[in-house]
Write a protein that binds this DNA or RNA. Structure first.
Length: 182
DNA sequence: TAGGCCATCTGGTCCT
DNA sequence: AGGACCAGATGGCCTA
């Protein structure tokens, strides 16, 4: 950062000697006020830029989330929640893929203490979830009801679960997006 | 018109 | 000292 090139005083050098006595204090207060205002303006500018950067990052995040172009833009909080759940779902997908590769039987999966995983069929349908029943979607994206599970909402929500009614229209109705936040 | 979302300003606090 | 970060306040815009 620049060393805040101490902005040259607006006073011209010749007048320095004259306007001294008696008014010194008042003048310095004016200067102080000016400096204060200047610092505030600079701070506001930085804060504005900071928020713009934050919004840019949020836009970048929105752009990688699976929604339709004609869907209403996700709000900030919706974007964060959706991303959180989306990452969780992808993680589950990878985990299930690993299980499949290791040829773990369904009975083994059912016995897993962590969580009853969604059906393989459900995962295979991930790219075209329209045929998945609501309860299967629930099993994939709504693990919050299972005690001890690592819910996608655990770290983001405090006590309050994100109901379907809170979700943006695209996520509530689009068959290609996650039907619910929980 | 109320409520939600957002941008901006502002003062406080922490860090370098 | 100055910058980054944060949270509260405020006002504008939009929608049901």
């Amino acid at each position: 950062s620049l060393p805040s090139s101490s902005s040259p005083s607006p006073e011209c050098p010749q007048k320095k000697q004259k306007a001294r006595r008696g008014r010194t204090k008042a003048k310095s207060e004016v200067v102080l006020t000016k400096q204060k205002r200047n610092r505030r303006m600079k701070a506001n500018d930085r804060e504005r830029n900071r928020m713009h950067n934050l919004n840019s990052a949020l836009d970048a995040l929105r752009s990688v989330l699976p929604t339709f172009p004609d869907d209403a833009k996700l709000t900030k909080i919706e974007t964060l929640r959706f991303a959180h759940n989306y990452i969780w779902a992808l993680t589950e997908t990878l985990r299930m893929a690993d299980h499949s590769l290791l040829s773990v039987g369904p009975q083994e999966l059912a016995r897993e203490p962590f969580r009853q995983p969604p059906s393989t069929a459900c995962l295979l349908e991930l790219t075209s979830p329209g045929s998945i029943s609501p309860c299967e979607w629930d099993s994939l994206y709504s693990p919050v009801s299972q005690a001890g599970s690592l819910s996608p909402t655990d770290s983001l929500e405090e006590g309050r679960s994100y109901q379907a009614a809170d979700a943006p229209a695209c996520l509530r109705h689009s068959p290609h997006a996650f039907p619910e936040f929980v």
